[in-house]
């Protein structure tokens, strides 16, 4: 598990999953579990339907905004926590309390305050992203060699400039691990909040199809969300590998949920 998986192996694995699904569905023979071939046949229809496409685009846009804002807020907090025991002591208990709260579950309350529009959904995604990014930035910043900072101070660097020019790059590999988890979480929070709010977006299409007993569409949407998750993660991993080619490879546990 420590070696990277080749693209070919991933394709074979995906094909194997689809084949297993097809076979299991034929054997089970129930309405609620159509074979892969029938679900996949629905995908072109969904992706050419203008309305659905707009819905999905709006979802992805909210996700992107929530993710970028979340990272922008979380990295400075995490980095300062790592360099100051007092700042860490300030934030740690609060973060520990927020950790087990499902962020998407805040949706009903936030909707009460901000309405059912983009603001609520983006805020929930923002909340989902911040925690893992803060955590990993904190770990990365804490692990920065003290002697490296002493050398920087000896060269006349001030506190802020040390944080930006020494701690940030040194902690970058770990920060990006957090961002990767955060990205998966953004997608999960997005889908989940749409399932709960049931107003627009991918999660809504998914459950509308369930309500209308369009089982092929339900499974097609599951595949679309799954592929979206895989592609986002793989693309980010590629970016990460390029940005921190100098660092030892990391094998972070992808722990994703809101």
């Amino acid at each position: 598990m420590t070696r990277p998986v080749s693209a070919l192996a991933a394709v074979i694995a995906a094909a194997g999953l689809l084949a297993a699904w097809e076979l299991a569905a034929w054997l089970a023979g129930i309405d609620g579990f159509p074979p892969a071939s029938r679900a996949l046949a629905q995908i072109p229809r969904i992706l050419t339907d203008g309305e659905a496409l707009l819905d999905i685009a709006a979802s992805v846009q909210r996700m992107a905004v929530g993710f970028v804002l979340g990272v922008a807020a979380a990295v400075p907090i995490g980095l300062t926590m790592g360099r100051s025991r007092h700042v860490a002591a300030f934030f740690n208990p609060l973060l520990m309390m927020i950790y087990p709260v499902p962020k998407a579950a805040l949706m009903p309350i936030i909707m009460l305050w901000l309405g059912v529009g983009d603001a609520s959904k983006t805020l929930v995604i923002f909340l989902g992203v911040t925690l893992p990014v803060i955590y990993h930035s904190y770990q990365g910043s804490r692990a920065v060699e003290q002697k490296m900072l002493w050398s920087a101070a000896a060269m006349g660097m001030g506190g802020l400039s040390r944080l930006v020019r020494i701690v940030l790059p040194a902690a970058l590999p770990e920060i990006l691990v957090g961002c990767r988890t955060g990205l998966v979480l953004a997608l999960i929070t997005m889908v989940t909040s749409e399932m709960i709010a049931r107003q627009a977006g991918l999660g809504n299409i998914l459950f509308n199809a369930l309500d209308m007993a369009q089982y092929d569409t339900v499974y097609a949407m599951i595949v679309i969300v799954g592929v979206l998750g895989f592609v986002l993660d793989a693309a980010f991993e590629r970016l990460r590998a390029r940005l921190v080619a100098w660092a030892a490879p990391s094998h972070a546990i992808i722990a994703g949920t809101t």
Binding site: L17, F207, A209, M221, I222, F230, A234, I254
Partner: peptide
């Protein structure tokens, strides 16, 4: 490879 494919998939989408 199975884990590599399945781990980043939002499992909540499997709920339906």
């Amino acid at each position: 490879p199975l884990v590599r494919v399945l781990a980043p998939v939002p499992k909540i989408a499997l709920y339906p």
